[in-house]
């Protein structure tokens, strides 16, 4: 199969370039990560992140034929050749397919992604009805792979000020949690022309999410909560 890989080595003094690679691989049942690892076995200078190889750790997000995807759950047979693999857009490239994720993590941390409840803890679990728990479905499953946020034009232009779809989806995960008591503060933290309202409903995030989550819908719910508390 034919591949075009983004290569960049900061120590070489060379500019980034696209490398054509031919790999002898039977695509049936194989994922893009299998191919990238086979290429690396031949040329160990190719650098990429990977860990669980089953789509739950979120390490190996890359841009494949123009779309952000997890290499480990992208079937080779679905991809048109030459398969063009680039690092995630919108973040600084450290080397080859590896980007600096810190701007993404920083936005994640900015929404205070932890449960806030200052009531004394009972000696058993806090109760939560199945219906209340169901509100977290579609939000808690996020794997922080950054496929969504780095596909968002609003994040490309304002990575310092716009929280981005992943961070906002996590903000919603805590707002929606019946056990969390900080909803007002969480909404205050987002009520800002940039942090929340840079979302223009482009919906690239929904298309990009490898877990089938819908950040745009969560953002919509946050916006309607803000409207509701004003009236």
């Amino acid at each position: 199969m034919k591949f075009r890989l983004y290569r960049y080595s900061p120590e070489s003094g060379e500019k980034p370039f696209m490398q054509d690679v031919e790999l002898d691989i039977e695509p049936a049942g194989k994922m893009l990560l299998d191919a990238l690892l086979a290429i690396k076995a031949q040329d160990e200078t190719l650098s990429l992140r990977r860990s669980c190889r089953e789509g739950v750790c979120g390490s190996d997000a890359v841009n494949v034929n123009g779309k952000n995807r997890l290499a480990c759950i992208t079937p080779l047979s679905e991809l048109k050749e030459p398969i063009e693999v680039r690092p995630l857009p919108g973040l600084p490239v450290i080397r080859d397919l590896i980007v600096d994720m810190e701007p993404f993590y920083k936005q994640y941390r900015s929404i205070k992604p932890w449960l806030i409840n200052d009531e004394p803890e009972p000696e058993v679990e806090r109760l939560q009805s199945p219906a209340d728990r169901a509100l977290l479905d579609g939000a808690y499953e996020c794997i922080l792979c950054a496929c969504c946020t780095t596909s968002c034009p609003s994040f490309w232009w304002n990575p310092d000020t716009f929280v981005g779809p992943a961070g906002l989806l996590q903000a919603y995960r805590f707002i929606a949690d019946s056990r969390d008591e900080a909803t007002a503060a969480r909404l205050d933290n987002l009520e800002d022309p940039y942090r929340l309202y840079r979302c223009r409903g482009i919906m690239n995030c929904v298309d990009a999410c490898p877990k089938g989550l819908n950040p745009t819908a969560a953002i919509g719910r946050i916006k309607s909560l803000l409207v509701k508390r004003r009236v």
């Binding site: 449960l115 803890e121 058993v124 009805s129 728990r133 949690d177």
Partner: peptide, 17 residues
């Protein structure tokens, strides 16, 4: 229980446990 208090989103029974 401590994990639950930290916010772990456990699935729930009808009685909320």
């Amino acid at each position: 229980y401590e994990l639950e208090h930290m916010g772990l989103p456990f699935s729930r029974l009808d009685n909320g446990k």
